[in-house]
Simulated assay, not measured.
Amino acid sequence: MKYRTHIVTSVAAGAGVVTTTDISFTFPYVIGIALGALIPDIDEPNSFIGRRSFGLARLIKTAFGHRGITHSLLACFLFVLLYQKYPSDFTLGIAIGYAFHIVGDFFSKRGVPLFSPLFKKKMKSPLTYETGGSQETVLFYIALFTLIYFLYEHKLYLQLLS
């Protein structure tokens, strides 16, 4: 999934979480989701975040490969621990964005190694899309319209402004 699709699908899903929980749709929460949605791709030097990582992405890719441990449940769990250690809307957003990135890539044709480093086998959904393909474009627009729906139907934009 391209970075913009990761961000929009994750923020839309995060808005959905807000509509069914006590979580507030604050600016730090949304920024955290957007950042969390990008972090797993720190293992790819040519990714949006990788190009801005001052060489860290190259080191991580050399050590673990692309879609390695950064795309696992273990890495996701570490960001949940970050939230537990430093609870805030921002760190909650990072953990949620990270989790939704993994979910998004689980539906890609390449899949993700959910149980890395124990098992390196990549798992994927039976229903998949090709990264950068027309199906991803459709997903992007569905997520964008879903986000707009949540913002106005549930008046989430008021929480952003407060």
Rank of each mutant, 00 (worst) to 15 (best):
3 Y>D: 08
3 Y>G: 14
4 R>V: 13
4 R>E: 14
9 T>A: 07
9 T>S: 10
12 A>S: 14
12 A>D: 08
14 G>H: 06
14 G>I: 05
16 G>D: 05
16 G>L: 04
18 V>P: 09
19 T>R: 11
19 T>C: 14
20 T>P: 05
24 S>H: 14
27 F>H: 05
27 F>L: 14
27 F>N: 04
28 P>G: 05
30 V>P: 08
30 V>W: 04
31 I>Y: 08
32 G>D: 05
32 G>T: 06
32 G>C: 05
32 G>R: 07
33 I>E: 04
38 L>T: 01
38 L>R: 00
39 I>F: 08
39 I>E: 00
40 P>N: 08
41 D>P: 05
41 D>Q: 03
49 I>M: 00
49 I>P: 00
50 G>S: 13
53 S>D: 07
54 F>I: 02
55 G>E: 02
57 A>H: 03
58 R>W: 08
59 L>Q: 11
62 T>P: 01
63 A>K: 14
65 G>K: 10
66 H>G: 05
66 H>E: 09
72 S>K: 07
74 L>H: 09
77 F>Q: 00
77 F>P: 00
78 L>Q: 07
80 V>M: 03
83 Y>G: 03
83 Y>D: 01
83 Y>T: 00
83 Y>M: 01
85 K>H: 15
85 K>I: 15
86 Y>P: 03
86 Y>I: 10
87 P>V: 07
87 P>L: 10
88 S>L: 12
90 F>A: 07
90 F>H: 04
90 F>V: 06
91 T>A: 05
91 T>E: 02
92 L>D: 04
92 L>F: 09
92 L>I: 00
96 I>P: 07
102 I>C: 06
102 I>D: 02
103 V>D: 06
107 F>E: 06
108 S>A: 10
110 R>Y: 10
112 V>P: 08
114 L>C: 07
118 L>A: 14
120 K>Y: 09
122 K>L: 08
125 S>G: 05
125 S>R: 05
126 P>E: 02
127 L>C: 12
127 L>E: 09
127 L>T: 14
128 T>K: 00
128 T>L: 02
129 Y>G: 08
130 E>T: 14
131 T>Y: 05
132 G>W: 03
134 S>K: 15
134 S>Y: 13
135 Q>R: 15
136 E>R: 06
137 T>P: 00
137 T>L: 11
138 V>C: 12
138 V>R: 13
139 L>T: 06
144 L>T: 10
145 F>D: 02
145 F>V: 10
148 I>N: 11
151 L>W: 01
151 L>G: 04
154 H>A: 12
154 H>S: 12
157 Y>S: 06
159 Q>Y: 06
161 L>F: 13
162 S>H: 14
162 S>C: 11
